[in-house]
Amino acid sequence: MQKRVTFDNRLLPYLLVTPQLIITIVFFIWPAGQALFQSLLREDAFGTSSEFVWFENFVRVIEDESYLNSFRVTAIFSISVTVLSLAIALVLAVMADRIVRGGTTYRTLLIWPYAVAPAVAGALWGFLFNPRIGVLAYGIESIGVNWNYFLNGDQAMLLVVFASAWSRIGYNFVFFLAGLQAIPRSLIEAAAIDGAGPARRFWTVIFPLLSPTGFFLMVVNIVFAFFETFGVIHAVTQGGPSKATEILVYKVWSDSFRGLDLGGSAAQSVILMAIVVGLTVVQFRYIERRVHY
């Protein structure tokens, strides 16, 4: 945690941590405290008086049908994004790992979507699937399916899942490829000598050894789908049609700035914080375990 050899200075260390600390307190800890505090208050519509109501806001939020819907939507959305992007990235990484020459070229060709903002990814896919002029929408219509994601909730969900998963493939690919290359060749060769074919080698040797990477990526991707996909939703579907793609983060935003429901949105913020804390704990416990692996 700390150096054996340190410097002696009374004032300097405080000066050095001050900038970071001020920003942390003003923009992180204070607002989070405010959210906690407001979640226990009820303010009238004009903000003139407030009343301490304990957990009434939470009860109201949890009993709200639209909040439960948002929870369901978030679950479906984040699981789909995670599974889809992990599966595609794993297949590509396993194939790229088999290729002796050109591996890095493929990495370059696959890595860059990470740099595309989720909102821009949403714009790209929204254009492809635009019911009037999109290329893919045209293809889908031509096989007889009525495609209009502005009206059909399932299709809107499919679209935001594609856009979000697309932007994660490169990231997952990098980690899977690194994980694959860290597996000792001797293990795979031993399995081959014992007569195991490529498929058998994959499921009995490679896949189990890759599972720590997979688990890590799963947590990171769920965090991404929960919190960083606001841009996709806001740019493409605005949570619609009829709340079919209203994920939790989008709902907090729209309740705060459109609904002006202070207590309710603060309660939602607190629930989200609890989710982040939970996910972070899972991530850290796993990292501790990885050391022993």
């Binding site: 800890i29 607002p31 989070a32 982040v276």
Partner: peptide, 21 residues
């Protein structure tokens, strides 16, 4: 205190942070 910021992305404290700013 610095560590805690890891658990407080903008997305979970939208309104109060906006008020501070």
């Amino acid at each position: 205190m610095i560590f805690i910021t890891l658990m407080l992305p903008v997305e979970v404290r939208i309104l109060p942070t906006f008020e501070v700013v």
